[in-house]
Simulated assay, not measured.
Amino acid sequence: MELKKENLDEEFISDNKLSPDEKFKGKWYVVSCHSGREDNVKSDLEEIIKKSNKSHLIFDIRVIKEKVRSEKTKKIINKNLYPGYIFINMIMDDEAWFIVRNTTSVTGFIGSSGKGTKSFPLTEAEVKKMLRKSDNVEIKELSKKDRVLHKANFEIGDFVTIKSGPFSDQEGKVVAKDDMKGQAIVNIELFGRLTPTHIQYSDCKKDN
């Protein structure tokens, strides 16, 4: 199914909203899992926490999503913004680490060197950027007559800086372009590795 994002910025589902003064007892960590199993991992973890009374160790689990319109069905659906990753607010001790790490479909914590070492939590700036809700409110449907070829002031192989959205101020290399959709695929560093990410032309500024 081909998905089309109609906004310049992402509109996140309300569950993802973080108020500026929201406080948590733990730190936010990024956990990798099998792509497409994010919601299952979240549900399984919530069930494990409930049954084992571990809510004093793991406080919040989130799958970050954006609203997109399906090119095929024209329906607005929620699509994972970070496929293969979930965000967990927790106290990083041996017990909590073991619960998360041994949940079905979880492959590890991001920021850990492996061999049982604990990972580093997200910084406050990373939390605000990755878990925030944008101010965008509208997703509109474009008719075929409104669809035009988009022009970009950069080429494949150029480095660009992302101007807005959850990846604002990050730099990456353009590896593909789609003039029909006005989107570029930019390799940006995400969770410690280069990740191909779809970015609107209008959100890309060519580096000098």
Results as ranks from 00 to 15, higher is better:
118 K>Y: 14
131 L>Y: 02
132 R>E: 14
108 G>K: 05
140 K>C: 04
151 K>D: 09
137 V>D: 03
129 K>S: 15
103 T>R: 02
132 R>G: 15
104 T>Q: 07
142 L>G: 00
116 G>N: 03
105 S>G: 00
118 K>N: 10
130 M>H: 07
126 E>P: 05
127 V>K: 06
107 T>F: 10
135 D>A: 15
137 V>I: 14
117 T>M: 11
139 I>Q: 05
148 V>P: 01
139 I>S: 11
111 G>H: 07
134 S>I: 06
144 K>W: 04
149 L>V: 12
145 K>E: 09
115 K>G: 10
127 V>Y: 00
134 S>P: 01
151 K>N: 12
146 D>L: 12
142 L>R: 04
137 V>M: 11
110 I>M: 13
120 F>K: 12
119 S>L: 01
113 S>M: 11
150 H>C: 10
122 L>C: 07
134 S>R: 12
115 K>C: 05
134 S>Q: 05
150 H>M: 07
113 S>P: 05
141 E>T: 15
105 S>H: 14
131 L>P: 06
111 G>V: 04
105 S>T: 03
111 G>L: 05
149 L>T: 09
145 K>F: 07
144 K>P: 04
135 D>F: 15
129 K>Q: 15
133 K>P: 00
135 D>V: 07
113 S>Y: 08
107 T>P: 06
110 I>D: 03
106 V>R: 00
119 S>C: 13
108 G>P: 04
112 S>A: 12
130 M>D: 01
152 A>I: 13
110 I>Q: 07
140 K>T: 08
146 D>A: 10
130 M>I: 10
118 K>M: 10
148 V>Q: 10
128 K>Y: 05
129 K>W: 02
136 N>I: 11
131 L>N: 02
107 T>V: 13
134 S>H: 14
143 S>W: 09
142 L>N: 03
109 F>R: 00
117 T>G: 12
148 V>F: 09
121 P>L: 08
131 L>G: 11
112 S>L: 01
143 S>M: 05
120 F>H: 07
113 S>L: 13
123 T>E: 07
133 K>N: 07
134 S>V: 11
117 T>D: 10
143 S>R: 04
139 I>A: 03
150 H>I: 07
109 F>N: 00
128 K>V: 05
116 G>K: 12
146 D>F: 09
109 F>G: 00
151 K>R: 13
124 E>R: 05
133 K>T: 14
121 P>M: 07
129 K>P: 01
133 K>G: 01
141 E>Q: 14
115 K>N: 15
133 K>C: 11
109 F>P: 00
135 D>H: 12
110 I>K: 03
111 G>R: 02
112 S>R: 02
140 K>L: 07
124 E>L: 10
112 S>C: 06
141 E>H: 14
129 K>L: 13
142 L>I: 08
130 M>N: 03
106 V>M: 03
135 D>W: 10
115 K>R: 13
124 E>P: 02
115 K>A: 14
123 T>V: 04
111 G>W: 06
